[in-house]
Computed example of a mutant assay.
Amino acid sequence: MAKKQRIKNEDPSINFRLSPEMKKWVINEAISKNVTVSNYLRNHLEKFIDGTLYSEVNKWDEYLPFHKSIEFLQLITFVFSKRKNSKCESTIQQLEQYIKTIKQMDNEDLPQEIISGFDTVLVELIKVKNNDLTNISFKFCGDTFHTPDFKYDLLEDYLLNKVEPMENYNV
């Protein structure tokens, strides 16, 4: 990265308004970092523009367990939505993302019975993805809510009763 140039008093400036609460927060943040308000805001703006601010903000994502990821949440939503409508309404890209997410489960700290259930979903997703997507229904969800091949009750119990709240993670 190029060496930062020192800001001079004759350099252009930009003024903008903040709410009193935001101004107080910015001042407190600058004080806690032992920098001026201008330096604090300028550094954040530079990091926002070059993309590093976003990566710093989401750095804690790498410490999150798999079952708290957006991809896992999307997969769970997809699987539970098939209880009401087994017809394939997903795009190829969505199916590929679900497949990728399920393949990550083998290395995660999920109960084996849940991983096995997702193996059934995986096989079916691959079959559907490799065929014409029109008029195709998923079979893992079963003909009725009461007889699915996928064990919804196991997943539901795991998510509601076994997953630790976020405050238990040291991130």
Rank of each mutant, 00 (worst) to 15 (best):
Y40I: 02
S69M: 01
L53P: 00
L75P: 01
K24Y: 08
Y54P: 05
F72T: 00
E71M: 08
T101G: 00
I99F: 00
Q5W: 10
F48N: 12
I76R: 12
Y54L: 07
E56K: 08
F16C: 10
I7E: 02
L73S: 15
A30R: 01
K47R: 09
S69R: 07
I7Y: 03
G51E: 01
S69L: 07
H44R: 13
Q5D: 04
P20V: 08
Y54T: 04
D61P: 06
L45P: 01
E89T: 14
V37I: 13
S90K: 14
K4C: 09
K4D: 09
T52I: 06
L75W: 00
A30L: 11
S69G: 02
S32N: 10
T77K: 08
D11Q: 02
Q74G: 14
T77Y: 11
R42T: 13
N28F: 11
S86I: 14
E10I: 08
V35Y: 09
E96T: 10
E46D: 03
T101A: 03
I70T: 12
V37M: 03
K23L: 15
T77A: 14
K87E: 07
D11E: 04
I31L: 11
S38Y: 10
K23T: 15
I70K: 03
N34K: 06
R42Y: 09
I102N: 04
P12R: 13
V57C: 12
H44W: 10
T101D: 01
N9R: 13
K103D: 10
K8W: 00
F72Q: 04
F78P: 00
S38Q: 10
F80A: 01
L73D: 08
V26D: 08
Q74I: 02
R6Q: 02
E46F: 08
S32T: 05
I31G: 11
T77S: 12
H67A: 10
L95S: 06
I70C: 07
S19D: 06
Q93G: 13
Q97H: 15
S55G: 11
E29A: 13
G51S: 02
L64C: 08
K103P: 05
N28A: 14
E56H: 09
D61I: 13
